[in-house]
Simulated assay, not measured.
Amino acid sequence: MAFQIDGFDVDRFVRETLAEDLGQGLPGGGRDVTSESVIPADARFSGVMDTRDAIHVAGLPVAAAFFRALDPQMTVEILVDEGAQVGAGTDLMRLEGNARAMLTAERSALNTVQHLSGIATMVADYVRAMANPDCTLLDTRKTIPGLRHLEKYAVRMGGGANHRMGLWDAAMIKDNHVLVAGSVAAAVRRAVDAGVADIICEVDRIDQIEPALDAGATRLLLDNMEPETLREAVALVAGRVPTEASGGINLDTIAAKAAMGVDYVSVGRLTQSAPAADIGLDFTPL
């Protein structure tokens, strides 16, 4: 079955990424000048992509699409499943095909797998540190423009779940919305009156909880609260809506905050700050 991510056009992403790297539309652009000048047109390579880090894998089908876009006859063998945890030195993919096509697609393919596997690996680290099967780790909208669907896919491959996909699928009422509306309750009521089904309301004080709930919030984001305050907030909510801890959460603090009874913990750095995984690709002339 073809690789698919809802809302994401893999073929378009591959096409536009390669066009950017090749300089299509620019003076002198539209070609890989190094490969064209050094590598014979009929030369063939075999290649092995491997990881130098222990990682959770994400993005290999996208990498394969880069190679096949330039050589539809290229043999591509993906050796590990998406989301798999593998050790350093693991082979991830084998390739055989046109040498120029491999060299031209190499960096785009590697960049994608390195970035997505880096995210998946960081997510897995946070899930492990949280050590709480009753609490779900969420990402945020802190994604690189144009890469949101891929990055949120990588979060799922690491064992996390997705918050809102964007501005369209749930309301999230934050301090600036409250500032304009006049109060938490007024802001939530406006969303209710507009017919919004899912209304997440950010609160940073205990006294905002009841007004938000009374107005119709369907989830509370408990922002920048210390663990004991989170415990008090969760007790006050008493299961009426799901609760989410957010703000100032890192590997050292996530377990304590998750243990206060919240349903979710959201962490922006999962997509904003994950380091790239060290993944390479070695070629052999045929």
Rank of each mutant, 00 (worst) to 15 (best):
L220C: 01
P72D: 07
S35I: 06
T253D: 10
M225I: 11
N224A: 11
Q85A: 15
P72A: 02
E82I: 02
V123S: 10
R44S: 12
L60V: 00
F66I: 14
V184Q: 02
H177C: 06
L251R: 03
E210N: 13
L26K: 15
Y264K: 12
G30V: 04
D175A: 08
E244T: 04
A186R: 09
G89Y: 12
A171V: 15
I254L: 14
A215Q: 10
R12C: 02
L138W: 05
I119C: 02
L179A: 15
I206A: 14
M260I: 07
S266I: 04
R189D: 05
T90V: 09
H163K: 09
L230K: 03
M49G: 00
A63F: 06
L110H: 10
R94V: 05
N224P: 08
G159N: 03
A238F: 13
G89N: 14
E232V: 15
G23D: 03
T104V: 07
G89W: 12
T75W: 01
I249S: 04
T121G: 05
A154C: 11
R68S: 14
N176Y: 05
R240D: 01
L60G: 00
L230G: 01
V123T: 15
S266P: 09
A120M: 13
E202N: 06
G261N: 12
A19E: 09
R94P: 00
R107D: 10
E226I: 14
G158F: 03
R68Y: 00
A88H: 11
D91H: 13
R231D: 11
A258I: 11
R189Y: 04
F45I: 03
T90P: 02
A186I: 01
Y264E: 10
A274M: 01
L70D: 10
P61K: 10
T90R: 11
N224G: 12
V113D: 04
R190H: 08
V265A: 05
E232S: 15
V192A: 13
L147T: 05
G23V: 06
V188K: 08
A258W: 05
T284Y: 06
D53P: 06
T271I: 13
T229R: 15
T271P: 01
E96R: 15
S246P: 10
E106H: 09
L70T: 11
I39V: 15
G89P: 10
T284L: 14
I144F: 12
P242K: 10
M165E: 08
D214W: 03
Y264A: 10
E228P: 07
M172F: 04
N250H: 09
R12L: 12
T90S: 14
Q73V: 00
A170K: 13
G87P: 03
V38H: 07
E151Y: 02
A245N: 09
L220G: 03
I55Q: 09
A171K: 01
L116P: 01
A58G: 11
M93N: 08
R240Q: 07
A235Y: 06
F283T: 09
A161K: 15
A274F: 07
L222K: 02
G7H: 14
R52H: 14
G28W: 07
S35E: 02
L79Q: 10
A215F: 04
G261V: 08
V123D: 06
P133V: 04
D169E: 04
V180P: 04
R128M: 03
L60S: 05
M165F: 06
G28V: 11
